[in-house]
């Protein structure tokens, strides 16, 4: 009982705790010569104890999504939302008809190949039971550029384009209370 009252609030170590994996809503981080504010945090439950994390970053009117996936090693992916029609106007129809998008996509004159597909649950703010969705991930020939297509429900689609990034590209993480 007393421990509860006297328990010291553990502060963050400004040299060790300000890392990308420990980003919190409200934090600021510099990327690509701009400062981004963390405005959201979500989790994806892929089943079997497999999770990935996502932080929503905003700078001015731009919004990006930073996703951390942990397989054999930690991978970071930074994307921005685009309309699925911007990738291919026929995509929704194809997915509804074949229950899958094509194995290859051409976007902005570049060819992307389907890398993985999976169904999971989206946990807004990292909490709750989650909302079910299906995702298809594509990579270009260099393995750096990414497209992801998501299906929510029967006819609701979302798409995002971006690239694989490295942790060192993100600097000056600033905490906020």
């Amino acid at each position: 009982m007393f421990e509860k009252f006297f328990k010291k609030k553990k502060g963050i170590d400004p040299l060790k705790d300000l890392t990308l994996a420990k980003l919190k809503v409200g934090y600021l981080v510099d990327y690509d010569m701009r400062t981004w504010e963390v405005t959201g945090y979500n989790r994806y439950d892929w089943g079997g104890g497999d999770y990935s994390e996502e932080w929503e970053l905003k700078s001015g009117s731009d919004t990006r999504y930073l996703e951390k996936e942990e397989d054999d090693e930690i991978e970071w992916c930074l994307t921005k939302k685009v309309s699925i029609e911007a990738i291919d106007p026929a995509l929704p129809e194809i997915i509804i008809k074949h229950e899958d998008p094509p194995k290859e996509i051409i976007y902005n004159g570049e060819r992307y190949y389907m890398e993985s597909t999976g169904a999971g649950y989206f946990l807004k703010d990292g909490k709750g039971l989650g909302e079910e969705f299906i995702r298809w991930d594509y990579l270009d020939e260099t393995g750096k550029k990414v497209i992801s297509i998501e299906q929510w429900g029967e006819e609701d689609f979302e798409a995002a384009v971006g690239e694989m990034v490295e942790e060192y590209q993100f600097t000056n993480i600033l905490p906020r209370e």
Partner: peptide
Amino acid sequence: QSTLTSLA
């Protein structure tokens, strides 16, 4: 830490 918070 407090300087970082102020900076933020």
